[in-house]
Design a protein around this nucleic acid. Structure first.
Lengths: 128, 128
DNA sequence: CTGAATCCCGCCAGATACTG
DNA sequence: CAGTATCTGGCGGGATTCAG
């Protein structure tokens, strides 16, 4: 009886695809913004304040990237002063749910990692 | 009847913790290497060849980082020529399983995203 | 073979100022 | 308010060389 593990073969195209998505997820701001938009549409400065520490430029660029990927929608109201709302698309929400396990993992293992880092650094310090 | 959604409150510490993990996951090479090590320990150059396109320097730095975080172990055999094996720790494997949903999501939505990008870019081109 | 060390360039993000 | 435009410094990362 054959007992092969059916690994989804790692073609280079798959790698690139995953990398492409991971680049978005790994982006310092993208996920934070997606999380924020998780509970409803928000305005530009609203996001800026909520995230904290992001420059106007980066927020603009990040939002553009998310919009380009079809993860958020941008709707502007022709009022004065202007008002622009950003909202998660269905795709965005599905990404959000795919990212959640990672968040859970993060919260439950951060302590472990922090300790590992401390131990590693301590050892490194003793060597020199 | 009240229908509140119980969101895990987003404290800044949580954000930093998640960001810290996301930084690792988002790192261009970390996850690829973790995936590779998923089916058993591998040698330095073995990883280098398998990943493809990574510089020696980056591979070294990435592996150090993963080791520091307690995600992989480094065991060197005092032979000539030297031989070093890298292997996933339990923590590393648990991260791997947390990342998997993302991989699944990526594969099933890459087409959608690619199309979204194309559409976005086309619109942008028409404007100018 | 597995690394450490050095040089060096490109681009990325922050700061700032300006526009509709 | 919600962006663009421009400049600039820092540093991430490739290429190369040396070492054990």
């Amino acid at each position: 009886m054959q007992v092969t593990v059916k690994l989804p073969d790692h073609k280079s195209e798959d790698c690139r695809a995953i990398s492409s998505v991971l680049a978005r997820v790994g982006d310092k701001w993208s996920v934070l913004i997606i999380v924020l938009l998780g509970d409803g549409p928000k305005r530009f400065n609203e996001i800026k304040r909520a995230v904290g520490g992001i420059s106007q430029r980066m927020l603009t660029l990040t939002l553009r990237g998310l919009e380009r990927d079809g993860l958020v929608t941008r709707t502007q109201f022709p009022t004065i002063p202007p008002r622009v709302d950003y909202e998660l698309t269905d795709l965005g929400r599905s990404l959000w749910s795919a990212v959640e396990p990672l968040g859970v993992w993060a919260r439950s293992h951060v302590g472990h990692i922090t300790k590992a880092r401390a131990g590693f650094d301590e050892k490194a310090d003793l060597q020199e």
